[in-house]
Structure formats: structure tokens, C-alpha cells
């Protein structure tokens, strides 16, 4: 599944780039994130609990940041698996200064869903992914500038 979209952050480009690389911030912003431990250069072990309507499931996986080009762009890879299925997202995040002093973020990538979630949740996946991304950027935006 292709995922693409945009968001706004009320930060300067450098700050926007920095918050998205900050594991403490990411841990707060990734929806359902329980823990984010550094395991290597730009690589983190992720534990998250997804709760959405009656669905709930724990995932373990990793977050990797690559292709860093501060403060313009980087790639983010998130993958996790749990009893209810697995997911993998890989996207390019680009940051452009906006006239209002903030930045326009655009993201573009692929997401894969597997397991029971993929087999029975087709109609939910697109909107759920969008909602989770929206929540992610809302949390980021709440960070101090």
C-alpha cells in the first residue's frame, strides 16, 4: 500500500528535523509506543500497543532512520510484529520551510500489513494508517519549538 501525505510543524526546519530524530520525542509521538530503546546508530527497538476500537495488540519491532540529509530529508523505517499480525512501513520524509515560519512535511512510502489484520481489515487499513500518522504529527507539533 502506498502512503503519502503532508503535515505542518510550527518549527524551523532544523528543529523539525531534530525532533523527528529524537528518540525521546519519537517515543512520545509514535501512537501506542511503550518503549523505544537505542540499539545502534539510528536504530531503535520499538515496543508498542495498538488500541483501536476493540482491536488491541502488542507489537515488537524496530525503527530505523537512514539516508539522513539534515535538515531536508531522511528515511524512516518502522516494523513490528505481534500476535495479531505484522506491519512494515518505509518512507521518505521531506521538510520544506513554509512562509509562516514553520515547515511543511511531506511523506511518501510503502506500508505492508500482514497476518489476520491484513486478511480481515482491508477497509480499515487506509484510514487507520492516516489517523495514526496524523496523531504522530500532532504529537510532534506539541513539542516546544
Amino acid at each position: 500500500m502506498k502512503i503519502a501525505g503532508s503535515a505542518k510543524l510550527p518549527f524551523a526546519a532544523e528543529r523539525a528535523y531534530a525532533v523527528m530524530q529524537d528518540p525521546l520525542v519519537l517515543a512520545k509521538a509514535i501512537p501506542g509506543c511503550d518503549a523505544l530503546e537505542k540499539t545502534g546508530e539510528d536504530e531503535y527497538r520499538l515496543k508498542m500497543k495498538m488500541v483501536l476500537a476493540s482491536l488491541s495488540g502488542s507489537f515488537e519491532g524496530k525503527v530505523r532512520l537512514t539516508d539522513s540529509n539534515p535538515p531536508r530529508s531522511f528515511r524512516m523505517l518502522v516494523e513490528g510484529s505481534g500476535k495479531i499480525g505484522f506491519m512494515k512501513g518505509d518512507g521518505l520524509i521531506q521538510i520544506a520551510s513554509a512562509p509562516d515560519g514553520g515547515v511543511d512535511i511531506s511523506y511518501e512510502g510503502d506500508a505492508q500489513i500482514g497476518g489476520t489484520m491484513a486478511a480481515v481489515g482491508n477497509r480499515m487499513i487506509d484510514m487507520t494508517a492516516r489517523m495514526l500518522i496524523k496523531r504522530f504529527f500532532e504529537k510532534l507539533a506539541a513539542e516546544p519549538a
Binding site: 476493540s54 488491541s56 495479531i84 489476520t116 481489515g121
Partner: peptide, 20 residues
């Protein structure tokens, strides 16, 4: 967790997507 008819919750539980 409240159950009120279960037309969404019970199928999710049977698929083990929900485990209240």
C-alpha cells in the same frame, strides 16, 4: 469492557484481534 450486542466486538474476539 462493555459489551452491547457484540456485533463488532465478538468477531474481533473470535479472530483474536481483540482480547478483553
Amino acid at each position: 469492557k462493555p459489551l452491547s450486542g457484540g456485533m463488532s466486538l465478538i468477531p474481533m474476539m473470535k479472530l483474536r484481534l481483540a482480547s478483553p
